[in-house]
């Protein structure tokens, strides 16, 4: 379980995240949407423990995130990193490296590490590319490899910023399937943030809409309404319901 208590963050004397409180429970997918620069990524950096100089308190399983050692935190929380600097590494070896926090230095990876890597690869249909170098993958497959890296950690909390960026339609379907399986089956927590409102609306159980460094609306996917889109995203939109699950689908009107 994740808890933020009056968390705030400033960067170069500018308050990028104003006092924010929220709770994310086990077995829940939490989505964060908002226009660019609204503080989504800052919030996620705090949640993943990458930023420590924030005000307030972040609790993971009722324990302050600052009290976790680096290795403990890596076992507990996994966030999606930027693109790797080294792309001359095979897909399998790359994903396997996410298991490093679970192995002792100088020891090899365990059979379980290999197994979970294989499963994560298979989940994103990357098994045929097992020995392909990252630099030789398409953009969508590369993104899938990054996501598989996160899922293979098998951490309690998954923090995904811009997870859908670069994924093709099949990739989106697989990501959603993996998230449902990961969170529901394992009673774990996932926090998604990004610009793909429809994916987050279709996937998350609870959604926060952020604007100018603060949460403006919080609730189920049904909070996504044309007025909200107009007010915080500055776009005219029509919101329909997905015939499969009744969750909102946002359709934008062309301007001009």
């Amino acid at each position: 379980m994740l808890q933020l208590k009056d968390v705030a963050l400033s960067h170069r004397e500018k308050e990028v995240l104003k006092s924010t409180s929220l709770s994310v429970h086990g077995g829940e997918i939490f989505g964060i949407i908002g226009p660019a620069g609204c503080g989504k990524s800052s919030l996620l950096k705090i949640l993943s423990g990458k930023v420590r100089n924030f005000k307030g308190e972040t609790l993971v399983d009722n324990r302050p995130i600052r009290s976790y050692s680096r290795r403990e935190r890596a076992k507990k929380i996994c966030s999606i990193p930027m693109l790797p600097e080294n792309m001359d590494i095979s897909v399998f070896e790359f994903i396997l490296l996410t298991r490093t926090p679970f192995k002792k230095a100088l020891n090899p990876f365990s059979d379980f590490d290999v197994q979970i890597t294989e499963e994560s690869m298979a989940g994103f249909e990357l098994s045929p590319y097992r020995n392909t170098l990252l630099g030789e993958l398409s953009r969508s497959h590369l993104k899938a490899a990054l996501l598989a890296f996160c899922f293979a950690r098998n951490a309690d909390v998954l923090v995904l910023d811009d997870a859908t960026d670069g994924l093709d339609l099949r990739g989106l379907v697989l990501l959603q399937k993996m998230l449902f399986r990961y969170v529901v089956d394992g009673n774990r927590t996932a926090v998604l943030a990004g610009n793909d409102i429809n994916f987050i609306a279709q996937t998350a159980d609870k959604i926060a809409i952020m604007h100018e460094g603060t949460i403006k609306a919080l609730g189920g996917p049904e909070i996504i309404e044309p007025e909200i889109i107009k007010q915080y995203f500055g776009a005219e939109a029509f919101v329909s319901k997905n015939v499969y699950n009744g969750k909102p689908n946002v359709h934008f009107f062309p301007e001009g």
């Binding site: 680096r70 890596a74 926090p101």
Partner: peptide
């Protein structure tokens, strides 16, 4: 070799 982001994400200095 993957970079600082990956190295620190997995719990190393």
């Amino acid at each position: 070799t993957l970079g600082r982001d990956f190295f620190e994400e997995t719990g190393y200095r």
